[in-house]
């Protein structure tokens, strides 16, 4: 019983589907173990970068976020955590906010409608779902 040409096509199709779903899993899975810094503007996620790695000690990655009409915030990511290093908002609360480094923590700039949030599974025992402030 030799498989016909179409049968082989079916099997190739299956292989492609399996490959694609592994690709999909991988992009999802990489977010799962590592922490992500998510930048939201007015509720929309506009950028999402991986949190610092141990070997990147001392390095500082700065992301400039233009929030429209000449307004901006600069988000700094280092091995110490994430902070807003500079902004031209009127209250500068985001710049004064303490450094965040745990999932569930966030820095908010209300005048610019900007939220910088750390997401992912915490490695620590005393991880929290949220913080009341």
């Amino acid at each position: 019983m030799k498989p016909k040409i179409g049968d082989i096509f079916v099997y190739v199709f299956i292989l492609v589907l399996i490959g694609l779903s592994f690709l999909g899993l991988k992009t999802m899975g990489s977010n799962r173990n590592n922490l992500l810094v998510q930048i939201e503007l007015d509720g929309e996620v506009i950028d999402s970068v991986e949190m610092w790695q141990e070997e990147q000690e001392g390095e500082l990655k700065e992301i400039r976020v233009d929030t429209g009409q000449g307004r901006y915030n600069i988000v700094g990511i280092s091995s110490q955590g994430v902070s807003v290093t500079e902004a031209n908002c009127p209250d500068k609360l985001c710049v004064r906010s303490p450094v965040i480094r745990e999932p569930g923590q966030s820095i908010v700039c209300i005048p610019h409608k900007l939220v910088v949030r750390i997401i992912g599974e915490s490695q620590r025992d005393n991880a929290v779902d949220d913080t009341a402030s």
Binding site: P98, I100, E102, G104, Q105, V128, D129, D130, T131, A132
Partner: peptide, 20 residues
């Protein structure tokens, strides 16, 4: 739900919450 309560002196203590 595990809810952390903000450390009111986080800039001194370096801790995000004082209790959970």
């Amino acid at each position: 739900w595990r809810i952390g309560i903000q450390d009111p002196r986080t800039e001194e203590t370096g801790q995000p919450h004082f209790t959970i």
